[in-house]
Nucleic acid binder design. Structure first.
Lengths: 351, 351
DNA sequence: TTGAAAGCGCTAACAT
DNA sequence: ATGTTAGCGCTTTCAA
């Protein structure tokens, strides 16, 4: 009986969190004293502090961060919003982790979300973040107009753009030199003796895709290699689409002897096509973006690598710097790319 | 002069967001009317609504979600906390995306963070989430005691555990049958004629690692195959560690003819070792967890696959269900694993 | 050293 | 249909 009744008491849980008022009442002190103790403010006698601490502990008190920051000077929420193409994408995930690590040092929580490269989605997500009054925003900008962010900047919420610049606003930006990276990838193939180098590109609405396309053209022209429109394909946004496109150009009358795949999924799509056709040791391949296991494929895949961890870390550091100093000049930080030679990019032309 | 002064005016930005009071003043109405319009509540004349909307627009007004929810009945923050081993890990990232998609449908933001499998870190992260009063928690439980979450449950914050059960609390849980998955992987190798099957396992503090170890032993015993302690290695938590361990057992006097790698990074580590020794076509390999490009390696890698997207989706749905019905019985949902036959696991014993 | 009162930006409850 | 007052849980200000 006693046991049963105890069980019932145990089940009648308090569906309400203890507040400072509750703690104050239990400790028999004023609410401000509780506030002082909880926040480690000076001017509380040790005995009093101990009493309050004990009361807080028995009530499982934890201060409500929202309420605290509502009135607190500076009114930081200690949270930041991070917008990625998709949290599920390895490149984005590496940035994510780097941002989290910098934020964690400052006790700042990270709200993240995926835009899927859709501008309306980006806008909606920014709105849910700013409604929560994040202290800052790190975005992978989609589309060609980010002026809708101006009110946020005016309100003092700093924004940093990663991977691509935001357009129509003046914000710090951390990118790699995509034109140069694509050029060096293409030149690497040209140096190996190729003339018919195909280009497989992502959606042109993505700024980096356009820049890589430009880098490819620049290298081809610089080497005096003719650009065959039949070997230049844009708008590929999945492994499957890239595989289909690669299959098509490889089976046409005058196929390329080399392929520059301008992005991760496109590279693996191209590899799928090359394998299916048994051409993976015949046609050279260089990809933009490194990927795990690239070294274990046969041939191992030569890539132009970015450093997403550095991108994320630097972007987060910028963001925090700007929170402290709103008026420092805006900077565009361009990180270098690195050619990683592994084999696939060094195959000579076979025809 | 005029230009300069204009520039100055432009630069003197309002470092303060408009409040409902500001909107009310500009529209010449009471604050409650603004509240009604902003929240789409009925009982406002169209003319009034239009006036308020116009004022809100000119002031770039956006309601402060924190302040709203502080008083609002139900007091949801429309946010949830997601704890993963690391946001940077492909398995975790897939869960992350699935959770985000379910949450987005309900207009709920996701706070995510990485535990790195460290219990103290998990605890600290949970604290930062609950201080922000997230509506629910999805955790990849670390360590062997999660009773510290009981006060949160009592306060009405639901918790769902993914990948591994939380210990010491009664919460919904979405896992795969690790014992069975590991058993089927091992049996697959035994059926191919192997007797000396090595086991490479993750840190024993991770529950799934222990379960997979158990599944391996169960299959070996079931088949009457002797378990050689020299071929059973735990505590591998990186590609490098796994590669070193695999290298060691493959170069010892009586090497295994097959390897069961109990996790993603361990599988790739094992492949690195096999490649380095030129044994990738001699020694059979089955991995736990599928990974991208497993089909493009040579030989392609046979794995026991989980469905992280399903895990994330189901976990998030459970969480939202429980928010509406706190008293439904706790469930443990066990998802099946699937053997994906690709080649590496079907190699016959060579010695 | 302590605490009472006002206020953060908003919504609930209750006028009018 | 509109507005006024109190109050969410906390911090700030100021008085004791």
């Amino acid at each position: 009986m006693t046991t049963l009744s105890q069980a019932r008491d145990g089940a009648r849980v308090e569906r309400r969190r203890a507040t400072m008022r509750d703690v104050a009442a239990l400790a028999g002190v004023g609410i401000k004293t509780v506030s002082r103790v909880v926040n480690g403010e000076p001017g509380v006698s040790p005995a009093m502090a101990e009493r309050v601490t004990a009361a807080a502990r028995t009530l499982n008190f934890q201060a409500d961060a929202r309420a605290s920051n509502l009135r607190r000077a500076g009114r930081r929420t200690h949270s930041l919003g991070l917008l990625l193409a998709s949290v599920d994408n390895p490149f984005a995930a590496a940035i994510h982790r780097a941002v989290e690590d910098v934020a964690a040092q400052r006790d700042v929580a990270v709200l993240s979300a995926s835009t899927d490269e859709r501008p309306e989605r980006e806008k909606a997500l920014v709105a849910t973040f700013t409604a929560r009054r994040v202290d800052g925003l790190i975005i992978t900008a989609t589309g060609d107009d980010h002026s809708y962010l101006q009110p946020e900047l005016d309100a003092g919420t700093p924004v940093v753009s990663v991977d691509r610049p935001a357009i129509g606003i003046e914000v710090d930006c951390v990118v790699v030199d995509n034109v140069e990276g694509a050029r060096s990838a293409t030149e690497h193939l040209l140096h190996a003796g190729h003339r018919r180098v195909a280009y497989l590109g992502d959606l042109p609405i993505i700024a980096t895709a356009r820049q890589r396309h430009e880098g490819y053209l620049s290298a081809m022209r610089g080497a005096g290699a003719p650009v065959d429109d039949g070997l230049v394909i844009d708008g590929l946004h999945s492994d499957e689409a890239a595989a289909a496109a690669a299959h098509r150009i490889l089976t046409q009358p005058d196929p390329p002897t080399a392929i520059f795949a301008s992005q991760n999924l496109i590279t693996t799509g191209a590899i799928h096509a090359l394998r299916a056709l048994g051409l993976h040791r015949e046609v050279a391949l260089v990809g933009f973006d490194d990927f795990s296991l690239a070294d274990l494929l046969e041939p191992a895949v030569t890539v132009v690598a970015q450093d997403p961890v550095a991108i994320g870390r630097i972007a987060a550091e910028r963001l925090f710097t700007r929170m402290e100093d709103h008026d420092r000049p805006v900077e565009q930080i361009v990180l270098p790319t690195r050619l990683v030679v592994r084999g696939s990019g060094e195959l000579p032309p076979r025809w």
